[in-house]
Amino acid sequence: MQYFYVFLVGGAFCAIGQVLIDYTKLTPARILTSYVVAGVILGGLGVYQYLVDFAGAGATVPLTGFGNLMAQGVREAVDQYGLIGALMGGFTAGSAGLAAAILFGLLAALVFKPKDKS
């Protein structure tokens, strides 16, 4: 049953994204940016965690989950270090995802060649 909720919530996030692609002039980069910003805001308001508890990866895998992670990180950093934590938490929480994306992106670029589409 847990996996059904994961599928449902994760799918719903993507379906909303598709509505934005089909019916607005938003470019993919703007949609991704909006998702992360929305994730930070929903995480900051404390509501996103309910979705994570309910749907697990269905809420953490979409980029809103990345935003929520940043909000969490900021909260922890502020708790620990005070105001300066506001500058630290976002990157700290997102560091694994970012470093992995850069590392694997670089490795893929070294190994593979761009291909024509047809």
Binding site: I21, P28, P114, K115, D116, K117
Partner: peptide, 18 residues
């Protein structure tokens, strides 16, 4: 050329878009 035009005007070839 499809590939040179894509990378100048649109997205990298391996970028997943519709």
């Amino acid at each position: 050329h499809f590939c040179s035009a894509e990378r100048q005007f649109r997205y990298p070839l391996e970028y997943g878009g519709q």
